[in-house]
Design a protein around this nucleic acid. Structure first.
Lengths: 178, 178
DNA sequence: TCAAACTTTCAGAACGTTTTGAATGTAGAG
DNA sequence: CTCTACATTCAAAACGTTCTGAAAGTTTGA
């Protein structure tokens, strides 16, 4: 194989490893995904372990995680016992999977916790000393800033997730912060 | 202080710690920021170390990082030797700082690497075997998917960064992917 | 059902990151 | 200028995460 092709392959794989860490995954996952993405043919566990010089054990566990995230698919070959993998090459599908589960969970949880806090502050108000009441008011201000932030995040997520095949921003008309 | 106020404070601080990890910072940074955000008065290094039960050394280093990210500001008190800190409470300012440096750098770097790869593939084409030429074509397809993704990310970043005080999505009119 | 070929699991090792606390540096009061 | 109260640094320790490889489990073809 021409050295330039090898280099391009390697730098793409490395870049996806970097990207994976940036997104809060580990870089082996990113490199596995990259290797599959840059391979015209499905690859077996052994192919991946040999190609990236990591143990089969690690490949097995990380590939399972990749599958859970919808970033790789299995691919059976008739008359072969091996399990072959292919990358999910529709990037937008991958993005939507990740945003739709992990990120969304975080945002929903945060909004829940903040909402609970507001509840508690309002319910407790009548039994507070004057000094505590001032502090409670201060807390409410700060919490409302945080709520505003997460609400925008939620809207943005909903917009991206609402688009069905290619991502477009038409649906986002106006999100304003008071 | 009323127990509900303490609880609200603690869960907010913990939540910001969680958020920080989610965003690729460490959770001490998040908790420090949270503690400052939920304090009506500026806090000293000792206040923070005692409040969060972590060493002064750690507070010192993490606060410096927070300052570098524009998430906290120093605040001198006349006739005091202590250094006091306040949270930057404008969340949108914080978001813009982070997006504008770290995330932007990643996106720009990725686009650069991908662009270089396209260059190399095109330049090398004439000296490739037929088989390699097919592979190069395949690489170009995949790389162009990645480029599309990062280009959308770049546009989205520019939009958010372009808005000056409150974040609004008016400016995003239409981003389409081919 | 068996044996071979492959995958998964998991305890321990390796590795990287974060924290601590003592040593060092620094700025302001007198 | 010196002394003191503070902040900062950094080597070593603690901690958490990821990897390895051998053992156990599973699937498939015969």
């Amino acid at each position: 194989m021409h050295p330039d092709l090898t280099d391009v392959n390697e730098s793409t794989v490395a870049g996806l490893g970097r990207l994976a860490r940036f997104f809060g995954f580990n870089d082996v996952m990113g490199r596995l995904y990259g290797t599959l993405l840059m391979s015209p043919d499905p690859l077996s566990l052994d192919d991946l372990a040999n190609g990236l010089k990591i143990s089969k054990g690690s490949v097995s566990m990380n590939m399972r995680t990749l599958e859970q995230w919808g970033m790789a698919k299995e691919h059976w070959v008739r008359g072969e016992r091996k399990k072959y993998y292919m990358a999910e090459s529709d990037m937008w599908q991958v993005i939507r999977n990740v945003l739709g589960s992990r990120e969304r969970r975080e945002v929903v949880l945060a909004l829940q916790v903040l909402g609970d806090s507001v509840e508690r502050l309002k319910t407790a108000e009548h039994e507070l000393t004057a000094e505590d009441r001032a502090l409670a008011a201060y807390y409410l201000e700060r919490i409302s800033d945080l709520q505003a932030f997460f609400q925008v995040a939620e809207m943005a997520l909903n917009t991206v997730l609402g688009s069905d095949n290619s991502l477009d921003f038409d649906a986002v008309t106006k999100i304003e912060i008071t």
